[in-house]
Each structure stands twice: as structure tokens, then as C-alpha cells.
Computed example of a mutant assay.
Amino acid sequence: MPPAKKRTRTYDPARTRTAVLAQLGNVRQAVRTLTPEQLGLPTRLPGWTVRELVAHIGMAVTAVGRSLDRPEPARQDAVLLDWPFATSANSSAIDDFTRRLAGDHPDLDAYLADVEQGLTGQLDAYPGTRLLATNAGALPLADYLVTRTVELVVHTDDLNAAVPGLDVPHDRQALAAATRLLADALAVKAPGGSTEVRIPPFAVVQCVEGPRHTRGTPPNVVETDPLTWIRLATGRTAWHDALRDAELSAGGDRADLSGLLPLMA
């Protein structure tokens, strides 16, 4: 009997919209409190200060509008899970654009307010089915908006790492969507059913070739929390460091996922 086909995960467009705007609002509220000295602090993104990082967060959101400004593709030729594997292609152009934005917008609160207003208007004006030309291919607006939760959650974590005590909160729905998208991307990269990856309370996926688990306790189990998983998937944390620091547990012959990570560079 062939294995059951996995059902593609779906995301509620209204909840995604609320999550993206909530996380952007969390960032904006925190940015208002930053001093010039804090804006000049280095981040874990090479060559970027906090100022560049904040500019890039806004840029990640305005990507929606830049895509809407282009002609609508004739047909969809990509799926949501193509996106995590297509993010590194334009890294040099992204760096240049980010630096220009940081220089052009000294008032970052006003900049993020404009970003928020623009996104709200765009989401009011266009249906979720509207196709966008993205770096991964032609995707519906509703799907592309899910990718913005990853950008916002990842870079909020970068911001917290750069500014001691800032502690920008993560919107629960944004964190959930980002966790699930990156967990599903792992299952795409390493298809199979021998290893169960648990990221409570948001995701459980089966991956890695080998004997398929059907009942009882799986022989290969990986478990971690959502933020640690996101750091692993995006290269902010190394597998062996997370194991050493007890941020991750992994048991079984096929539970070492270090060769599969990061998913996004």
C-alpha cells in the first residue's frame, strides 16, 4: 500500500494579515525607543548596524508593494514552499538597497509608519488571489504574505540579539506561521518518514528517508522550541551549539539534522 500523500498546509489570509501588521507594529513601537547609540550597534548580520537592520525590516514589508507595482504574471508557476530556498540569490542587491534605505530615512519611526500605511492600503485594494512576481516565482498575494511572517520574526530576533534588553515581542500567530513554513520546508528538503521533528506548540513534521514510523514512540525524534528552530533554519544558531546549550534534543540514528541546516542562508 503506498504511503498517504501529505496534504499541503494552508494559512488563513485574514490571520496572516493580522499577524504581519501586529509584528510590524511591535517592531515600530520598539524602534521609537532606540537611542542614536543603540541604532549604531552592530548586529549579527555582517556589516549591518541596527539602523540598517530596521531599514531592512521595512524593506521586507514593502516588497509586497514592489511586486504589486509590476505586471501581474499570466499564471502561477511556484508554490509557497519554493520561497525558503530562493532567498539567497539576490543578497548583494538586498544589501545595497538596505544601505540606501537606511541613509534615505533618518526618521525610522516615520519610515515604518509609512510602510505600515502602505501595506494596509495594498491589502485592502487587492485580493489574496492576485499573482505577484517574486524571487521564488509567481505566487498569490496571500501566500507571499506568509513569507513576510518569516522575515519579520527572524529580523525581530536579530534586533533583540543586537540591543540588550530590548525584548521586542513576537506575535503568536506570526511566530506560528514562520515556524510551520520552515518546518514544512525541511520536509521538502529531506522527504521521508523516519524522523519526527517536533516544535511545540506549532508544528510536527516527518522527514528523512528510512523506515517509516507508524505507531508508538518514533525511533528518531528531534524537539526544540519555535525560536530555536527558526534560528537553526536560518543559520543564526548552529546545530551542535543548540545541542550543547540544551535548546534542542535529538535521539535516534537519523536524528542528526546538522547536514540539512540551515534551510535559508
Rank of each mutant, 00 (worst) to 15 (best):
P13V: 02
T98F: 13
L141H: 09
R15A: 14
T217F: 14
V221K: 03
L243V: 07
R70Y: 08
R17S: 08
M59G: 15
A183C: 15
I199P: 03
Q76R: 12
T149E: 04
E116S: 14
V197K: 01
T237G: 01
D245G: 03
V146R: 02
R28D: 01
R236D: 01
Y144E: 01
V205R: 02
A113K: 01
A125N: 06
M264R: 07
F97G: 00
T10H: 00
T10I: 03
R66V: 10
A93R: 07
H240V: 03
T62W: 15
L261R: 05
L186D: 07
P106L: 07
A233N: 02
P219G: 07
A86W: 04
A55G: 12
D245L: 10
V150R: 01
Y144P: 00
L41D: 07
T224S: 09
R244L: 10
P3V: 08
Y126S: 06
G251M: 10
A265R: 14
Q29P: 00
G103L: 10
P191Y: 07
L152V: 10
D95L: 13
R212Q: 10
P46Y: 03
E72V: 15
T87N: 07
A4W: 05
L132R: 01
D241K: 09
N90V: 14
T217K: 13
V115S: 03
T179M: 04
P13N: 05
S258E: 06
A190G: 03
T234C: 05
L45T: 10
R75Y: 13
P262M: 02
A74P: 04
